[in-house]
Nucleic acid binder design. Structure first.
Length: 358
DNA sequence: AAAGCGTGGTT
DNA sequence: TAACCAAGCTT
């Protein structure tokens, strides 16, 4: 017996499942009570939910499953179509991996999903968390998905003071000790639901928590400051100029970004590189303008924050007359068709700035 | 293994 | 308001 106040893992699991039955939210990817979860739906939802809130995912999930109800349908789609549907949701490698994984499942595997956690883990875009989540939720395997919610509720209920990410291995081990032999899918969802709705990062609702009686952090009054986290490096600011080039007949010039890396495979308004040092407009035009034209700076500056840097993007605009020059690299898109492009949020801000001043 | 990878809501 | 944070994965 450890010195921990957690004396009975089975009791914690039981209390959590009772709480879940009474409080679970109605989410579109959840199986109807008594029915088996659709692995495809579980997979799509879990990938969308990576580092993304339920509120943000919901409309994307609805649209995605309406358009591609099965893994075979998704496999038959083009990557561009998938990226277009994913636009605005972020972390676009998820969409690329989702598409690759669909083709692998529908093709080589004949539409059959692996069920074991280790086999799911080998698929593109499926890491430790997602493999455990699919195995538990879709197949009732005894796996224990550990996401940010689970790290938090476990750190608090056991009173673990070790900062993340160093504490992750220990918190994962402790989470596994609580996983019951049955209803593993519900238990997995219940742990995350508890973290998302009660045991929140700030102002935890301990008065509504099924684990309050056993929670070490609550007893110590330390819940709100757990889990501890190591300090993060500061985010630098990068700068660049975007080139909004309109042609009276053809529309606006867009390009597709390289297939991998930041915003990989997405469409963009052509721009200079994004760097720490500021640019003069003349330097930007000399290095990166997509065409010889009368460029004029817009007043609006687009600001956008990525995971690891802030971006300040100024905009130069120009209009071409006559036939579209053949030596311009990119795609001319009529203005009304911009909404159908795989333009990420940053580029939608550029579009809004340019059209607002045009 | 540390860094790259989006976006929007909350505080 | 600037910082924090979200049902993480890849290299």
């Amino acid at each position: 017996m450890s010195a921990s106040a957690i004396t009975d893992p089975a009791r914690l699991a039981s209390r959590l499942l009772d709480w879940y039955d009474a409080n679970k939210r109605d989410l579109p990817w959840r199986a109807i009570a008594g029915e088996r979860a659709d692995p495809y739906a579980v997979w799509v939802s879990e990938v969308m939910l990576q580092q993304t809130t339920v509120a943000a995912v919901r409309p994307y999930y609805e649209a995605f499953l309406a358009r591609w109800p099965t893994v075979e349908a998704l496999a038959a789609a083009s990557l561009d179509e998938v990226l277009q549907t994913w636009r605005g949701l972020g972390y676009y490698a998820r969409a690329r991996n989702l598409h690759a994984c669909a083709r692998l499942i529908a093709g080589e595997r004949g539409g059959r999903w692996p069920q074991a956690e280790a086999d799911l883990r080998a698929l593109p875009g499926i890491g430790a968390y997602t493999a455990a989540a699919i195995a538990a939720i879709a197949f009732e395997h005894g796996s224990t998905p550990v996401d940010g919610n689970v790290l938090r509720i476990i750190a608090r209920v056991f009173g673990i003071e070790t900062p993340l990410p160093a504490a992750k291995a220990e918190l994962t081990r402790l989470a596994r000790t609580l996983t019951p032999p049955r209803r593993t899918g519900d238990f997995a969802q219940a742990t995350m639901e508890l973290g998302a709705t009660v045991c929140r990062p700030r102002r935890p609702g301990c008065d509504r928590c099924p684990w309050a009686d056993d929670c070490v952090a609550r007893a110590k009054g330390s819940a709100e400051r757990l889990p501890r986290r190591s300090a993060r490096p500061p985010r630098p600011t990068r700068q660049g100029w975007a080139f909004w080039l309109e042609h009276a007949d053809a529309g606006v010039l867009l390009r597709q970004r390289p297939a991998r890396g930041l915003l990989g495979g997405m469409m963009e308004v052509p721009s200079t590189p994004w760097r720490r040092a500021p640019w003069t407009a003349a330097e930007a035009i000399a290095i990166a303008a997509p065409a010889d034209a009368r460029w004029r700076p817009l007043n609006a500056v687009v600001e956008h924050t990525f995971t690891h840097f802030h971006l300040r993007l100024s905009v130069l605009a120009a209009r071409l007359e006559g036939p579209p020059p053949p030596d311009v690299a990119g795609t001319w898109v009529p203005l009304p068709d911009l909404e159908d492009q795989a333009l990420p949020s940053l580029m939608m801000k550029v579009v809004a700035a340019a059209r607002g001043e045009a």
